[in-house]
Amino acid sequence: MSPVARNKIDVHILLAADVVASVEILPRVRPPLARMFAGKEPSTVLTVLPRLFALCVAAQKTALLSALETARDEVITRATRQQRIALIVTERIADLARSLFVGHLTLDVASAAAIRSLMSELSAFVRSAQPAWSSAQREATARIVAALAALGLHEGEALRSGSPLALRVAALNDVDVKSIPAGHSFLSVADDLNITKRLLGDDSTFCYCPDVDGHVPETGPWARQVSRDRLPLGPFGAAERLMARINEILRLCAWLKAGAQIGAAEHGIIERYKLGPRRAAAAVECARGRLYHAVELDAQGRISRFEFLAPTEWNFHRRGPLVRNLQGAVLTARRREDAVHAVIASLDPCVAFTLNLSEVRDA
């Protein structure tokens, strides 16, 4: 089967009455970047990288560039670090907003014009990133905040009652999958060194089927919110993850509006790790979660080894967050497929997915 044909995730759910009896995930085929990059000059790879990823392009490029600089023992300035963090934040806002509005309000005709206006502002904002934070970018941030307010999202407040997104959250609460209590873990900067060392270790399967001490943690907006705010863990699903996206968009916009100061930036948003002579890795918090790149350079400075680990490999792992949310869950909604689809979409995979539900009697 070719990588192109498998550039999606297949989720198979087996039901016993209204209970999820089993969850099987057939993961995507990852692009063969390790083979493509081997022996290449880093400058060549950095040039072609944006053509290889449709999503999180700035995060991918920043992760690779940071890993390369660390492998070469280069030091970056504070101004460069600030510019990169601001770029990652603007891209995160754009990606989160795209999945938020396009994914949840696709059929809301009344909001269509406001959503188009917001996405246009966000796209222009990402393209216009400057080495230093400028007055033009502050003005663009103010326009984005105003566009979000028009759609019912206000900084420091709950969703406007009766707004399309408030109704969507309420609907998800009504039809959500009722998960059984399960242990949950969340990926964080504290896991970076363990993960980055293993990326360049002897286990070639790690980047396809990762774990942290046998656990498969969740990564993404909900994981970041739980870790940051130390939220108590009760039952959660699509509605909570949707609210986490909303809260993160508003929080990141507030940071940009305040001047994108590096001292107030999110902890661990870009981290670099030296792993040995000409070996290094970097971690970047992108929209869907924590992204890792690791490189080893030869004596001439060419890439001799490259590995990457995307958020999708954690969230759609065969023992990961999606399986934990669904295994044994009771589907109380009349439209069971819609309820399960919402849980899958709440983890926002970086590729398309298919869902197949079948009953035990049909197996």
Rank of each mutant, 00 (worst) to 15 (best):
R127S: 10
H154T: 14
A265N: 01
V216C: 07
E271S: 15
R35M: 08
S134T: 13
R305Y: 05
L167M: 10
L322C: 03
R302Q: 11
S161N: 09
I88F: 00
L68V: 15
E218A: 15
G234R: 12
V177T: 09
R160S: 03
P131Q: 06
L15Q: 01
P210M: 08
A21N: 11
L100R: 01
A147W: 04
V4I: 14
A17V: 13
L122W: 05
P311A: 10
R318K: 15
G183H: 11
G103V: 11
C350K: 00
L148N: 04
H341M: 12
H184N: 09
E121Y: 13
A329P: 01
L148T: 11
S304H: 04
G103L: 06
T44I: 12
A5V: 12
R251V: 08
C253Q: 03
A114C: 03
R230I: 12
N7Y: 08
A345L: 08
L87W: 08
F125A: 05
K178E: 09
A166M: 01
T44L: 11
P50K: 01
D338R: 11
L309P: 02
D211C: 06
R143T: 07
V145N: 00
A170P: 01
G263E: 04
R138I: 10
E240K: 08
D73A: 14
Q261Y: 03
L256W: 05
I25S: 04
R198W: 01
K257G: 11
T80M: 13
H154D: 12
D298Y: 03
S358M: 11
L297A: 06
D338S: 07
E157C: 14
A129L: 07
T354D: 11
I13G: 00
S99K: 05
R28E: 11
R302K: 14
L14P: 00
D203N: 12
P232S: 13
V175N: 07
S204M: 14
T62H: 10
V343I: 14
V11F: 11
T47Q: 04
H293N: 04
E69H: 07
K40W: 08
R318M: 13
H267I: 13
Q82A: 15
Q60V: 05
L347D: 03
Q225R: 14
W255T: 04
R318I: 14
G263H: 00
G320L: 10
K257V: 07
I9S: 05
S66L: 00
S2V: 08
A113W: 06
L231D: 00
V343H: 00
G152F: 02
A171N: 02
E157V: 12
T80S: 08
S135Y: 03
H215D: 09
R35F: 02
R251M: 06
